[in-house]
Write a protein that binds this DNA or RNA. Structure first.
Length: 329
DNA sequence: CGCGTTTGACCCGCGC
DNA sequence: GCGCGGGTCAAACGCG
């Protein structure tokens, strides 16, 4: 299990002590500069000073953005190294067993669906009318030898979402799609119940979602998507405005690979080769959308970091003080 | 009243 | 063949 804390601003060498800048100036000078500031400056002088300060802050902002971008690139490089490493090195025996069990379970899922076809009046009948759906075509073939093909066709992916540990709801993995809960089950290996959802946006949509809290960290929700949506995304805006931020690293193309708005980005690198393409496609990593997403992530993390805020405030106030002092002299 | 959720029962595959 | 466990169904229930 590899969770990446995207940003740790505490490691940045930021000046988080607002007083340190003030210390550089004798207190009396600061006090006098403040006291004279009010009476001496005219409005125009103040405006020009503020404008200069604004441009200066803008430059600092640019520099910070560049640093963030650099950080982001370093992060991507490291991640690529890790993914390459994981793909090149064989799994340990115990890990292999887990993967093997998962594969068996997933193959049983597909055959289950096929066997259920006669019981399921609603969706499956409709699906059988849907000639373009390859999933349903394959699920109708109940022959065991078709399992591997089905396994390849039913694409799965995982999304990890960090939530409040006290929040017991399993429905907070918002991704813009409409989901209808059709079951909940307590599994043996995890005391937390697993919830089962179907995509209800389109009646013929075969996509299912399983949501369960991680046994290792109960503040993390693990959402497993199965299948592909056969309809367009109902609302990208809704996805972007949802309360969780997560990154999908898997093979299912349909659930949104990037959703936004929470503080956590977690990458699933636990299934390196189950479907053959578990690592993030380099096109995705290099895409401006992904880059922008990462930058937004970092900016979000930074703005939520009190020490970073203090550092920025200190830098601005320090500059402001210095500026006023130099202007005065 | 319609829609979504809950939850116990049932089905099915797998291992022994 | 039997038991176990995961997945699904569908009636009951709650909410707006």
């Amino acid at each position: 299990m590899a969770y990446f804390s995207l940003l740790d601003t505490s490691s940045l060498d930021l000046n988080a002590n607002p007083m340190s800048l003030v210390d550089e100036v004798p207190i009396k000078e600061v006090q006098t500069s403040f006291s004279e500031l009010g009476r001496k400056n005219s409005v125009t002088e103040e405006t020009s000073a503020l404008e200069e300060e604004l441009s200066r802050v803008n430059e600092e902002n640019k520099k910070l953005t560049e640093q963030l971008t650099e950080l982001c690139e370093n992060y991507n490089a490291l991640r690529n190294h890790l993914v390459d490493y994981m793909s090149k090195n064989p799994l340990r025996a115990d890990q292999a067993n887990v993967v093997e069990k998962k594969r068996k379970a997933e193959s049983s899922i597909t055959t289950n669906n096929g066997g259920r076809a006669t019981n399921n009046g609603g969706n499956n009948n409709i699906n059988s009318d849907h000639s373009s759906s390859s999933d349903e075509d394959s699920s109708c073939n109940k022959k065991p030898r078709a399992r591997e093909e089905e396994h390849v066709k039913v694409k799965t992916s995982r999304v990890y979402v960090r939530t409040e540990a006290s929040d017991t709801s399993l429905q907070i993995v918002k991704d813009g799609y409409q989901w209808r809960k059709y079951g909940q089950k307590v599994t043996r290996d995890n005391p937390c119940p697993r919830a089962y959802f179907k995509c209800s946006f389109a009646p013929t949509c075969p996509v299912k979602k399983k949501v369960q809290r991680s046994i290792e960290d109960q503040s993390i929700l693990v959402a497993t998507y199965e299948g592909e949506h056969n309809h367009s995304h109902p609302s990208r805006v809704e996805a972007a405005a949802s309360s969780n931020r997560c990154v999908t690293i898997g093979s299912a193309p349909s659930p949104p690979r990037l959703t936004s708005s929470g503080p956590t980005v977690t990458l699933d690198l636990t299934k390196p080769n189950t479907n053959g393409d578990a690592k993030i496609p380099s096109q995705v990593v290099k895409s401006p959308e992904f880059q922008q997403f990462l930058v937004e992530q970092m900016a979000s993390s930074l703005t939520k970091d009190p020490s970073f805020k203090a550092a920025v405030a200190a830098a601005i106030s320090g500059r402001f003080l210095q500026h006023n002092l130099t202007e005065k002299w």
